[in-house]
């Protein structure tokens, strides 16, 4: 079973990139989701938003569109855009592994968002390549005898989660 691990250092870097993107693109919200629907990081006016549901639906949306792409012989559709009356959603795939979502209204424009996302995509891709490398080296370190914090999980730990 594969695992995706996010460390504090890279988490801060990701937040910085998407925070900058939000400001540069004059967007309301920017967030990053992995392709399985787990939210990785978010920036912006999040109070009124159910980001967990957004993450899951975004991933479902991208998965369905990926399926469509394959059916017509495309590798993927790297960009999805949904235009609403007030708010718009711009979705792009970063390095075939994670999904970048920008929500914006009339204070910004599709052209500006597209331009800023292109730059942020490159920065994010670099970070995710670094994360992957770190996970690999952690794995090797572990086989050298250093255990993960979960190696010691006991039945009691798990049972306690289900106690009323």
């Amino acid at each position: 079973m594969a695992q995706f691990v996010l460390f504090d250092e890279e988490f801060q870097q990701i937040k910085e990139v998407i925070g900058r993107l939000r400001a540069d693109a004059q967007a309301k919200v920017v967030f990053i989701v992995d392709k399985n629907g787990q939210q990785i990081a978010a920036q912006g006016d999040l109070e009124a938003l159910d980001t967990t549901s957004l993450a899951s639906l975004t991933a479902g949306n991208v998965a369905a569109t990926d399926g469509l792409a394959k059916l017509i012989g495309e590798k993927e559709f790297p960009v999805l855009f949904h235009e609403g009356e007030r708010d718009n959603v711009y979705i792009s795939i970063v390095g075939q592994r994670v999904i970048l979502v920008v929500i914006f209204d009339e204070r910004s424009s599709l052209g500006l968002v597209r331009l800023r996302v292109r730059k942020a995509n490159q920065d994010l891709e670099r970070i995710f390549v670094a994360i992957q490398a770190k996970v690999e080296s952690e794995k090797e370190r572990r086989t050298d005898g250093v255990d993960s914090p979960f190696a010691e999980i006991t039945d009691d730990d798990i049972d306690s989660l289900f106690r009323e």
Binding site: Q3, F4, V5, L6, D8, F11, Q12, D34, N36, Q38
Partner: peptide
């Protein structure tokens, strides 16, 4: 795929 987020624990 389990997602372990050390930043958010």
């Amino acid at each position: 795929m389990t997602f372990i987020n050390y930043a958010a624990r």
